[in-house]
């Protein structure tokens, strides 16, 4: 389990990480996203004991990340963002060296290591300096995982990998998750978060601005569908079941549905003659896009929030899951609901 409590590590008054609080439970994959320079790598290097936190406590399995770094490393696999290996070593030699540095001498069980080498098609002949950067990354993945660690700290592990290897790596993460590993995954790729993570934290300018559950996020997510009807549809019926819509022409509509009510929408639409039914998928990427835009400051957040609340009445939401409502209003106090903002944009 990875735990951060009020961790602050300043490079300057604006650079660094500030009052970070989050935890990654056993068997959980935590997606750590945010724009460049937000402090993701700093957090990870702090967790790996490479830099010391100025304030607060960071622990992995209850061990302090700086003072007990070597004990933590026994059971941790770390894939750094920038791969730096001993260039003049041969691949086999390097793998043996790392194994020995882990305190394992002689011909021990190399089954897991061989399996990883095979899985990621790592070229084991030749020197490291002659390898491509993608191959070096694959080698790093093998070294990070070959001792079957309980905790995985991955800093943009798939950058530089080809799509096939990316996919294999994500499969591996899912397998490891099923085996009860604790995984912190820093990434820019939302597909990766969608595919592997249970929770996602968004870091911006050193502060955690979102920390939420992917499952509930999915339920709250609004799906949009572009529908072409053969005849004017029964709009009353659509409204009655609580779906929003926007009319483009006599027969072209965009219909909005909460992520957990798609089945109801299907039933409603089954009474109509539908010619075209296209999903206008709203990915996590769109939801988080706002956090990547630097110019959105806290004040603008507030303005948007007010607009959202004004507009809320216009969109029929009477059938929303009632239990979500209080949570929503509570959230709006601090930050705008991403879903609402997107809806705003769409309406505009």
């Amino acid at each position: 389990m990875i735990e951060l409590k009020d961790v602050t590590l300043k490079y300057s008054s604006t650079k660094g990480i500030f009052n970070l609080n989050f935890s990654v439970e056993k068997g959980q994959v935590f997606g750590y996203v945010g724009p460049n320079d937000a402090g993701k790598t700093t957090t990870i290097r702090m967790l790996m004991g490479l830099i010391r936190a100025g304030r607060g406590s960071a622990t992995i399995d209850g061990l302090n990340c700086f003072s007990r770094a070597s004990a933590i490393q026994k059971n941790t696999g770390y894939v750094p963002e920038d791969v730096a290996l001993f260039e003049n070593m041969r691949v086999k030699e390097y793998l043996n060296f790392v194994t020995q540095m882990r305190g394992i001498f002689g011909q021990k069980n190399t089954r897991l290591r061989d399996m990883l080498i095979e899985r990621f098609e790592v070229e084991t002949r030749g020197k490291i300096e002659n390898m491509s950067s993608g191959m070096k990354k694959r080698l790093t993945i093998v070294t990070a995982l070959m001792h079957d660690p309980q905790t995985l700290v991955l800093d943009e592990p798939t950058s530089g990998l080809d799509p096939l290897m990316q996919s294999r790596f994500l499969d591996l993460i899912l397998e490891e998750k099923r085996r009860g590993k604790t995984v912190l995954l820093s990434t820019h790729k939302f597909e990766e978060v969608e595919r592997t993570c249970d929770r996602v934290g968004v870091l911006r300018e050193g502060r955690l601005v979102e920390n939420m559950d992917i499952v509930s996020l999915r339920a709250e997510e609004t799906k949009a569908y572009l529908v072409k009807f053969a005849a004017p549809p029964n709009l009353e019926q659509i409204k009655k079941y609580g779906f929003g819509y926007q009319q483009f022409s006599q027969s072209d509509y965009e219909i909005f549905s909460p992520g957990d009510r798609i089945d109801v929408l299907m039933k409603v639409l089954s009474h109509e003659k539908v010619l075209v039914f296209n999903s206008k998928n709203q990915s996590l990427e769109e939801i988080f896009q706002q956090h990547y835009k630097k110019e959105i400051k806290q004040t603008e957040f507030k303005n948007e929030e007010n607009n959202t609340q004004e507009n809320e009445g216009k969109i029929k939401r009477s059938e929303r899951k009632p239990k979500l409502m209080p949570k929503k209003t509570e959230k709006n106090r601090t930050l705008p609901d991403p879903e609402e903002t997107v809806r705003e944009v769409k309406k505009a």
């Binding site: 004991g49 770094a69 070597s70 490393q73 920038d82 290996l85 882990r102």
Partner: peptide, 17 residues
């Protein structure tokens, strides 16, 4: 400077060692 020292520290050996 090259960054390869990180791979030494990411083994169960303390900085002091």
């Amino acid at each position: 400077y090259e960054g390869s020292f990180t791979s030494l520290l990411c083994t169960p050996n303390s900085r002091i060692k």
